[in-house]
Simulated assay, not measured.
Amino acid sequence: MTWIILGIIAVIVLWFILTYNGFVNLRNRVENAWAQIDVQLKRRYDLIPNLVNTVKGYAAHEREIFEKLGELRAKAMGAESVKEVGDTNNQITQALRTLFAVAENYPELKANENFLKLQEELTNTENKIAFARQFYNDVVMQYNAAQQRIPASIVAKMMGLTPKEYYPVDEGERGPINVQF
């Protein structure tokens, strides 16, 4: 009888250790995924001043968009929560779209090699951010789901784990796309 009780205790302890290590692994994956987003956002923040300065040479009177991008960049770099980072970066995306729309009015700017190079780098960075955001949200989903499964939820509560936030999507990207031919 003692061996059976010791066997049950050993199985419970082993299960607890495996579950605990699983949560540690998932938490580290979430932190790594966030770090990947952070790297791409840093790259984006570094490109913005170069892009703004290039456009300023051609469209100096578009001061409002330049100031807005500067303010949003500073706000995003100081953001602390996932939601704050996401919301601010969604605003930056909208401001960059406006900047590129302004650039359409300046044929000499559209032909400028620096502008074209910066635009291409920013496009590549945006794609990397989208991929990193998708990966982050996938890992957060796994982490949050693991915390909700029984009996692992007991270990999650004992560890004091709380669900992580998803990286938010720009509300404008949720609506239907208007395609015209």
Results as ranks from 00 to 15, higher is better:
residue 147 Q to M: 10
residue 118 L to G: 02
residue 175 G to M: 14
residue 97 R to D: 06
residue 126 E to Y: 07
residue 143 Y to P: 10
residue 122 L to E: 01
residue 161 L to S: 09
residue 171 E to V: 09
residue 125 T to S: 15
residue 99 L to E: 01
residue 132 A to T: 08
residue 144 N to H: 10
residue 154 I to R: 04
residue 153 S to I: 10
residue 85 V to Y: 04
residue 119 Q to C: 05
residue 162 T to F: 06
residue 134 Q to E: 09
residue 176 P to D: 13
residue 122 L to N: 02
residue 158 M to E: 02
residue 175 G to Y: 13
residue 161 L to C: 08
residue 101 A to F: 09
residue 125 T to W: 12
residue 97 R to W: 01
residue 135 F to L: 10
residue 97 R to I: 05
residue 175 G to F: 00
residue 165 E to M: 11
residue 132 A to M: 03
residue 113 E to T: 14
residue 101 A to R: 12
residue 91 Q to V: 00
residue 92 I to S: 03
residue 125 T to R: 07
residue 170 D to W: 01
residue 117 K to M: 07
residue 93 T to K: 05
residue 147 Q to R: 05
residue 115 F to A: 09
residue 171 E to D: 08
residue 156 A to H: 03
residue 143 Y to H: 12
residue 111 A to W: 04
residue 110 K to Q: 06
residue 166 Y to W: 02
residue 138 D to S: 15
residue 133 R to P: 00
residue 129 I to Q: 13
residue 111 A to T: 03
residue 84 E to F: 01
residue 148 Q to H: 14
residue 147 Q to K: 03
residue 150 I to G: 01
residue 129 I to S: 11
residue 98 T to G: 02
residue 95 A to N: 09
residue 177 I to T: 15
residue 168 P to F: 12
residue 157 K to P: 00
residue 160 G to D: 05
residue 98 T to V: 05
residue 149 R to M: 15
residue 127 N to F: 12
residue 109 L to H: 11
residue 163 P to E: 13
residue 105 N to P: 00
residue 157 K to E: 01
residue 141 M to R: 12
residue 176 P to H: 11
residue 90 N to Y: 13
residue 172 G to M: 03
residue 87 D to C: 09
residue 146 A to E: 07
residue 146 A to T: 05
residue 144 N to F: 14
residue 146 A to N: 01
residue 135 F to N: 09
residue 165 E to R: 03
residue 154 I to M: 08
residue 155 V to A: 11
residue 90 N to M: 14
residue 100 F to I: 00
residue 134 Q to V: 10
residue 91 Q to H: 06
residue 174 R to I: 15
residue 166 Y to R: 01
residue 131 F to Y: 12
residue 175 G to W: 02
residue 116 L to E: 06
residue 127 N to R: 10
residue 160 G to S: 11
residue 99 L to Y: 03
residue 114 N to R: 14
residue 101 A to W: 02
residue 140 V to W: 07
residue 101 A to V: 10
residue 168 P to V: 13
residue 141 M to Q: 05
residue 144 N to A: 13
residue 118 L to Q: 13
residue 105 N to V: 07
residue 93 T to H: 01
residue 83 K to P: 01
residue 173 E to Y: 09
residue 101 A to Q: 13
residue 151 P to N: 05
residue 146 A to F: 01
residue 100 F to K: 07
residue 158 M to D: 00
residue 96 L to S: 10
residue 102 V to S: 14
residue 85 V to A: 00
residue 114 N to E: 14
residue 85 V to P: 00
residue 138 D to F: 13
residue 94 Q to T: 15
residue 152 A to E: 10
residue 177 I to S: 15
residue 155 V to N: 02
residue 167 Y to A: 08
residue 169 V to I: 07
residue 98 T to L: 04
